[in-house]
Design a protein around this nucleic acid. Structure first.
Length: 970
RNA sequence: GCCCGGAUGGCGGAACUGGUAGACGCGCUGGACUUAAAAUCCAGUUUCCAUUGAGGAAGUACGGGUUCGAUUCCCGUUCCGGGUACCA
């Protein structure tokens, strides 16, 4: 029985596969537990060591729950639609369906080799027609729904039609694109197309014009969260704002419920805060300002109606509908120039801009409270998409308004006295009202209410809530996504494709490059022209497939429904969801939306999809660089040379064949990235340091990998190496490094494969857990992995003698040994519940040390056998090997998880720290049941204590049983 | 700017609801085994002072506070990480 990790790994992985050890039962008698990992996009790079951090954590929980008798759903699948796969296809000419299949297979193999206990029979793949049939079906349901604000839920569109037919828009409280005012008669008199357009105003999935993030390079629109700093997150291409007709989902209707739901789930505070910020609820008031000389009104939204007496000008967005009307003849040129200036500016320019700009329209509003004329300006600092696209500017209490007023020489009226609140800023909303007529003397919060009430009374506005969140853009002019299941009839009226005709499969296409705003599917004419009409050619964004996938795992092969009612009634929701924090907003928020929608339809029994969410920390890795310098020889020749990182400029050099000279660093020198796998990690003066050895460079010529080819090309830039020699006489060069995200382009991707091959999968798993708290970001380093390996070896050695033969006795274990065992069980059980896996590993180490050190190692079956079941979730292969050797039946992973027996943990005595004025000076043992008085009396009498008390008065003695004793002396 | 985290030995990190700070591991030092090395095992390892047996002082980013007692709670400051931004 040898400790041969590779053999053991292979043997048991094979066994689990053959025996379907991790199959989830369809029986509903056992209690359920659903542990979900965010499914990956299967990229060509494969898994790196950062991915498994979360996977291993969730796997441990799954295994424990399985052993504890739960029916565990622990599935995995692939998010294979979307931009990256398509972009890769365009770059390489390999069809996405092909590359996806290859990558998916690789991912599954890697995951299996990490012993992740997924039930692969339940795997889903978002680009599989059997899956996206139901993605499309859900969208048809969204299309066929509207949001009833009175009932606060989504309802079938047929019920809206009934309402419109009998009452028009009277008594209709619906989420809508714009407010409509129709009688039943007007509605009924409309043409079919007109009626369809009216319904579009209310549908949960609707087409509408809006300014969208247009990315020319990718040929498609992007969602807000796909744009970062004015550039596309994928590919880093410029993004501009452009008005387009697009499909959208009315997420704004759910804003309040998405906000409220956060109080019922167990997510980190940071993540909840991010979601709240994204939704961005702000309360304030709507107010109407008369526009001088017309009967039109300018509608504004403000969170500070109290400051209305300080309003000295108005600002509307440059794209605001009223701008042409507001612009007077004299101001036409100014306005046109300014609009041209804004139009030419990209998002990036706008964000870089700090100074205020704008132009005067020539028109005036009347301040409804003061009846004074206030000028109307346009400026890009007012966003057309937020609120009403117009603001009342209060330069005294808003920093941007103040800057604008200063620039344009506009009057500033102080309306709030903040002297009572030193240090308060405008955002704090505190102070006493001044210069504000009936509001004078009020505190700001009271004034807000009073001003709002006054607006209502005057019929000039009302209290209003505004959201930052915009309706979700759900169209992409791309190939690799779910086609919208919509057909437009001859009258251009959209109809959903009937469920029995789903899925609408993607037509096979060879060339699917996007061309400026036109979907590639437009070119698939034999596909998009049908007898019923033309097909919608927009596809859905990647989030369409991922926002409901957790439901499909429950019932992955159902071809009648997306998930059967009785199945979802059993599985309910996800008990633990693990994944990267980069999906904190988009993915989580959108799947919460779809879940709530399905709840309204009665398709799911819970209000939230994910009960508890764990974000694993990112694992970074060094990006290592080799230094290229120039050697200037005495005869004035320049020779490129590879030098150590720490060699300074002007260092004298001497090289065989080149003679003497010194080092020059100029524009032709610099650093070049080195593939991390060729580099050795060492420690110099306690700082991590990286070297490349001559051997590694020599081995390069035989290396066929892509990164080796890259590095060979790099190394051609100089053929001289200024080697240094380590204490073993080996030649190396010192490299520089900086920590960063693992990425193929930085040549610092570390895959788990090599480490598993060298140390075994169990060692890799435990080492990743041992790195630290799972939710913390950390740099990858293999220093320390030997310690985990030594531990596993020591653990194994408890079971075998010096000849690697199983040697376990049936003798009764000592009290001390049982105490070690049960201390361990208690600690591990509690810490898994807290998702504190690093401390679990420590606890195993402590126990292994306790049992193998001191007076001979423990070989008692009564102790060792439960330990095997206990370590199984962490080291699944070794545990199964030992379990089988001990005569266990079946797999250890289906054997009961040990339970703590408190009787072994009872202490006879407790060691009390004895402190004087809070400083611990010594310890004394007292019986566990000793009374406070006894402890105090005995402690006082103790000679060592007396020594500390000598010459001092005891003012107070604090005795906390099983904690400590403190003498307060003076 | 705003929001959310975080700061503990040479390093990664422990420390229950305020109660012996530094568990566990790495690294380092010394020793055993070995012809030697690797592996393994044993001992030591917060800092400073002292050391014959001892012992003592300080210490959890910094400055205050609450408390018999603070890594833990409160106030302020600095630095680091993440998110987000003309959001009215």
């Amino acid at each position: 029985m040898k400790f041969d990790v590779n053999t053991i790994d292979k043997k048991w992985q094979q066994y689990w596969k053959e025996h379907k050890t991790y199959r989830t039962s369809t029986e509903t008698t056992k209690p359920k537990f659903y542990v979900l990992d965010m499914f990956p996009y299967p990229s060509g790079a494969g898994l790196h060591v950062g991915h498994p951090l979360g996977y291993i954590g969730s796997d441990i929980v799954s295994r424990v729950k399985r052993q504890q008798g739960f029916n565990v759903l622990h599935p995995m699948g692939f998010d294979s639609f979307g931009l990256p796969a398509e972009q890769y296809a365009i770059d390489t000419g390999v069809h996405p369906s092909v590359s996806t299949a290859v990558n998916t297979k690789r991912y599954q193999e890697q995951m299996e080799s990490l012993a992740l206990s997924f039930d692969w029979d339940r795997a889903v793949n978002t680009s599989d027609p059997n899956y996206y049939k139901w993605t499309q079906w859900i969208i048809t349901q969204v299309f066929e729904s509207w949001y009833d604000q009175a009932a606060d839920k989504a309802r079938p569109i047929a019920e809206l039609i009934a309402h419109l037919t009998s009452h028009g828009t009277r008594d209709l409280a619906a989420a809508q694109t714009e407010a409509l005012d129709l009688t039943a008669e007007q509605y009924k008199a409309m043409s079919a197309k007109e009626q369809s357009d009216v319904l579009m105003n209310y549908r949960m999935a609707y087409r509408g014009v809006s300014f969208v993030n247009w990315c020319e390079a990718l040929g498609t629109v992007l969602a807000n969260d796909e744009v970062k700093d004015g550039r596309s997150e994928r590919g880093n291409h410029p993004v501009v704002q452009k008005p387009m007709v697009q499909w959208k989902l009315r997420i704004t209707a759910y804003a309040d419920r998405l906000l409220a739901g956060l109080d019922t789930v167990d997510y980190s505070d940071g993540l909840k805060a991010q979601q709240r910020n994204w939704i961005g609820r702000s309360t304030g008031a709507q107010a109407f300002f008369d526009i001088e000389g017309t009967d039109k009104k300018l509608e504004v939204f403000t969170t500070r109606p109290d400051t209305i007496f300080g309003t000295t000008f108005m600002v509307v967005a440059p794209e605001h509908d009223l701008v042409p009307e507001l612009t007077t003849t004299e101001q036409e040129k100014d306005i046109a120039d300014y609009q041209a200036y804004v139009g030419a500016r990209s998002e990036i320019d706008r964000q870089a801009e700090t100074k205020v700009t704008g132009a005067f329209t020539g028109s005036y509003c009347i301040n409804p409270f003061t009846m004074k004329r206030v000028p109307i300006y346009i400026s890009e600092y007012v966003l057309k998409d937020y609120g009403t696209g117009a603001i009342m500017a209060v330069p005294s209490d808003d920093d941007r308004d103040e800057r604008f007023a200063n620039k344009f020489g506009i009057e500033i009226i102080d309306v709030i006295d903040k002297s009572k609140y030193p240090g308060a800023t405008n955002k704090d909303k505190v102070g006493i009202m001044i210069n504000s007529d009936f509001l004078n003397g009020m505190e700001v919060p009271d004034a807000i209410k009073a001003a709002t009430d006054k607006l209502v009374e005057m019929g000039r506005g009302e209290g209003q809530v505004n959201f930052r969140i915009r309706d979700l853009l759900f169209s992409r002019q791309r190939y690799w996504g779910e086609p919208w299941p919509i057909i437009y009839d001859v009258n251009d009226i959209p109809h959903v494709v009937a469920t029995e005709d789903l899925p609408v499969e993607l037509p096979p296409m060879e060339d699917f490059r996007a061309e400026s705003g036109v979907s590639p599917l437009e070119r698939a004419t034999e596909w998009n022209v049908t007898p019923a009409g033309r097909r919608e050619t927009d596809t859905m964004p990647a989030t369409a497939g991922s926002n409901w996938y957790y439901l499909r795992y429950m019932d992955p092969t159902n071809d009648k429904e997306f998930v059967a009612g009785e199945v979802v009634d059993y599985w309910q929701d996800v008990d633990l969801y693990v994944g990267g924090a980069e999906h904190a907003v988009s993915h989580i928020l959108y799947s919460r939306l779809i879940h709530k929608f399905l709840f309204d339809l009665g398709k799911v029994p819970t209000r939230e999809p994910y009960k508890k969410l764990l974000n694993q920390g990112m694992i970074g890795a060094p990006i290592v660089s080799i230094h290229l310098g120039i050697m200037l020889t005495e005869d004035g020749q320049r020779h490129p040379v590879w030098v150590g990182d720490h060699i300074a400029e002007n260092t004298p050099l001497e090289v065989d064949g080149l003679g003497k000279g010194h080092l020059v660093l100029d524009e032709s020198s610099g650093t070049r990235k080195v593939p991390l796998r060729m580099v050795e990690e060492t420690s110099v003066d306690n700082e991590p340091s990286y070297r490349i050895y001559k051997e590694a460079i020599d081995a390069l010529s035989a290396d066929e990998a892509q990164d080796a080819a890259y590095f060979r090309t790099i190394l051609q830039q100089a053929d001289t190496f200024l080697w240094e020699t380590d204490k073993e006489g080996k030649q190396y060069l010192e490299l520089s490094f900086q920590m960063g995200k693992m990425s193929k382009s930085k040549y610092n991707v570390i895959t788990p494969d090599d480490i598993c091959a060298r140390y075994g999968t169990d060692c890799f798993r435990m080492y990743e857990m041992f790195l630290g708290p799972i939710d913390q970001a950390k740099p990858w380093s293999v220093s320390g992995i030997d310690g985990v390996y030594r531990f596993l070896r020591r653990f194994w050695n408890l079971f075998v003698d010096d000849n690697d033969t199983l040697n376990v006795s049936n003798d009764t274990a000592t009290k001390e040994e049982m105490k070690v065992l049960h201390t361990l069980i208690k600690k591990v059980t509690e810490d898994i519940e807290k998702l504190s896996f690093n401390t679990c590993v420590s606890a195993f180490m402590v126990a292994a040390n306790d049992l193998s050190k001191g007076k001979g190692k423990c070989d008692k079956r009564a102790v060792l056998e439960p330990m095997v079941r206990l370590i199984a979730p962490f080291a699944p292969h070794i545990a199964d090997e030992l379990f089988a050797a001990l005569g266990g039946v079946g797999s250890v992973h289906l054997a009961p998880f040990p339970e703590v027996e408190e009787k072994w943990l009872v202490e006879d005595s407790f060691t009390y720290p004895i402190a004087f004025n809070g400083k611990t000076r010594l310890t004394l043992d007292f019986p566990a049941g000793a009374s406070k008085a006894d402890i105090e009396a005995e402690a006082k009498a103790h000679p060592d204590v007396a020594k500390h008390l000598d010459g001092k008065t005891i003012r107070k003695v604090i005795v906390v049983p099983k904690r400590m004793v403190n003498f307060v002396v003076g």
